[in-house]
């Protein structure tokens, strides 16, 4: 799936002078299938806004976001849910876990939402093992630390089918070692699906061999 942006500009940011220096806002950009993209975004430049626009959580912007040439705004709720179940996975900055479900149930939910599951149940244990959170799998997500929650959110995003992965500061609560393990898991899952990802972060990093690096 190709994601194209045609002069996208969020209305709340329209008057900010920083917008004119952006390589994203108000530009024509195409993200091709399987591309690994890093977008560096200092605070206040609209990082989360950008992710939410791509994921179609907000519509207060000018311009157009196209998925394979189709404007995302025209998607019906059914088409949108298919897109999110099959093609577009996400790790939110604020994780967005269900606090009343256990870590495992949070991950399960994304695994079983699509009508045909991508992975079996055992893969949850494997991924948890790789990220070192096996011991909290049966713990309610609400009482997990931020670092643990972030890793749950990453695994949750990886158990479903996708060709694009959106990552909003995915390692902000992880130490270097855990971040590296998570990055490795993300790399292998994206390679396996020949999927692309868009990672937004405040600083430069060396976790991935990016195909393209942009400035928001």
């Amino acid at each position: 799936m190709t994601i194209s942006l045609e002069n996208v500009l969020p209305i709340p940011l329209a008057d900010k002078p920083a917008v004119s220096n952006s390589e994203i806002w108000n530009r024509q950009i195409v993200f091709n299938q399987s591309e690994w993209i890093k977008i560096k975004a200092p605070s206040g430049t609209g990082k989360t806004t950008f992710i939410h626009i791509l994921y179609h959580l907000r519509q207060d912007y000018k311009g157009k976001v196209l998925a394979d040439g189709n404007a995302v705004v025209d998607f019906s709720s059914q088409e949108l849910s298919t897109l999110r179940q099959q093609a577009l996975s996400i790790v939110f900055q604020d994780m967005k876990l269900f606090p009343q479900l256990t870590a495992k149930e949070n991950i399960q939910l994304n695994r079983v939402l699509p009508s045909s599951t991508y992975y079996g149940e055992e893969v949850i244990e494997e991924m948890a093992e790789r990220l070192g959170i096996t011991h909290i799998l049966n713990q309610k997500a609400g009482i997990c630390s931020y670092g643990e929650q972030q890793r749950i959110a990453i695994i949750r995003a990886l158990v479903q089918p996708f060709n694009w992965l959106l990552l909003d500061e995915p390692f902000s609560h992880l130490d270097k070692k855990n971040a590296a393990a998570a990055a490795q898991l993300i790399s292998s899952e994206c390679t396996k699906r020949s999927a692309g990802f868009i990672l937004l972060d405040l600083e430069d990093d060396t976790y991935f061999s990016y195909h393209r690096q942009l400035q928001l």
Binding site: S77, Q78, S81, T82, R84, F98, L113
Partner: peptide, 12 residues
């Protein structure tokens, strides 16, 4: 709302 955000279809 969160279920829909994660991709749950209204039909489901």
């Amino acid at each position: 709302v969160l279920l829909v955000t994660l991709g749950a279809a209204p039909k489901q």
